[in-house]
Design a protein around this nucleic acid. Structure first.
Lengths: 139, 139
DNA sequence: CAGCATCCCCGCAGATACTG
DNA sequence: CAGTATCTGCGGGGATGCTG
């Protein structure tokens, strides 16, 4: 698996830092996109069926327009999401998955499904951890 | 999908900071942990074999001690990672996956594998997107 | 070696207002 | 309806120094 990454040809440490996500190897960058907070949810929703912008917004519940737009643009740019803007009034834009996006969404959904399945176990583990460690309070 | 807000209401847990936002439903919270920037990498590395702290640090390359510690603690608390601290001098701590963690790591690795496979396609898509759109604007 | 405490900065993300 | 543009804060996360 090679996770190295090493210096991204910049070598800067303090002073000039690498700007956010742009300074990592492309492989990790894609991963960041599909596993991003809203990216995960968008992919899963679109795997079910195409959605309009505000449909996604409502389905997700708590996401600002800005973040949803940003997420969708990133995923579109990565070739995972297809944006179909119809020239009508009022505007209507449908988002759907590309072939590539369906593959990614499948993986993501599998992960999400696992999470849901095992959620209870995880919560038990947390309680056990907190009990053993803090014994009530860590402070 | 219904993603409520549920505003964390409780102010504090037994820690000053915890990876991620505590104000979301447990399901998404776990997802955040395993898909977090360093969580993904840690899980994949540990799926291969147990690692010591600095082994992980070196393998990942660019990660601060703080973030690695934080990530490992979160994953340990979630019952995904086992921490084995041997009472020797100098200290030796081995991190490995639990059964639960192996399951999660498998999912994550599948996703990462997909990303690596399709990386080239994604990059082509990006170029196409930028050419069609930016044509001088670059983003 | 492993990990905690502290400081501090910048970029993500929310809020708000405006446009086609 | 589906976005853009702009402002702001706050907390993620890097750097540094210290401890067991």
């Amino acid at each position: 698996m090679a996770v190295s990454s090493s210096t991204a040809a910049d070598g800067t440490l303090s002073g000039e830092y690498v700007v956010g996500n742009e300074g990592m190897c492309p492989y990790r960058l894609i991963l960041e996109h599909v596993t991003s907070r809203w990216g995960v949810l968008v992919l899963i929703l679109l795997l079910d069926r195409p959605h309009r912008f505000n449909e996604l917004r409502r389905a997700i519940g708590r996401v600002s327009e800005k973040m949803l737009t940003q997420t969708l643009q990133t995923l579109e740019r990565d070739g995972l999401v297809h944006r179909d803007a119809k020239p009508v009034i009022p505007p209507r834009v449908d988002y759907s998955l590309t072939g590539l996006g369906r593959e990614a969404a499948g993986q993501v959904r599998a992960l999400a499904a696992w999470t849901e399945e095992r959620m209870e176990k995880v919560q038990e583990a947390r309680e056990a951890y907190d009990t053993a460690k803090g014994n009530g309070k860590g402070r």
